[in-house]
Amino acid sequence: MEQPQDRDRRSGSFTAAGMRRGARAALGLTLGLIPFGLVIGMTADARGLSLLETLLMSALVFAGSSQVVALGLWQEPAPILAAALTCLVINLRLAPMGVALGPVLDRLHGFRLWGSLALLVDNAFAMMVTEMRAGRRDAGFMVGAALAMWVNWVLASGLGHVFASTIRLPPGHPVFFAASAALMSVLVPIWRGRSDLLPWILAGLLALLAHGGLGLGAPWPVLIGALGGAAAGAARDLRAAR
């Protein structure tokens, strides 16, 4: 199981070259996140947040869907507990991502470890998984990709706030599909072959059942689908290994 590069485990665990490579690789995906960022800015403006407050939220929270939902239940005065609970529940899907990055993160300590985790987002995670499977374990790659997305995210939400009255896009406009399309494209490099079919199909079906059948809100469809699908895949793998 151990790869040859494990001989010098520390070297190349976090490099500037990796960061540059990650940032470059993320450029295409950041494009897909611009419409989403604009929506955050426009929603924040509609809820009475100032430009500074909008920028601060995007910079510090950096998790789109939880920001949308929290802004949806925004009030005067700001709903501190409700907003925090929203983030906790919706971003729970990020917890298993950190776990899956173990082989990369185990080589880091201190600020690099906990700072890298602070930048963990869906798209950067997917890119890092592809890197790991190619045998590369430079955490700088993920941090570079995530930083590119972060800069883009803060700028786009600021622009959305500034031009809120000028850009009047209806909620269901096709442009907003860009964020979902970006995640669809992420599935392609993650795909490893036919053995992924069972866990993926089951994950999708369980999520649909939880969402449409049982009417559960976020994060339950994601968590039920992801854990159920992955468990089915694991059960099959262990039975085959015996």
């Binding site: 899907r93 298993p96 991502m97 776990v99 899956a100 173990g102 869906d122 995670f125 997917a126 998984v129 979902s180 995640l183 669809m184 992420v186 599935l187 993650i190 795909w191 490893r192 992924d196 866990p199 993926w200 089951l202 994950a203 999708g204 079906l205 369980l206 999520a207 649909l208 969402h211 469809p221 994601v222 968590l223 039920i224 689908g225 992801a226 854990l227 159920g228 699908g229 992955a230 895949g233 694991a234 793998d237």
Partner: peptide, 14 residues
Amino acid sequence: LAHLPGAIFVAFLA
């Protein structure tokens, strides 16, 4: 854990 990445995104998108 090996199956989790793909399953998370499929369950999110469906």
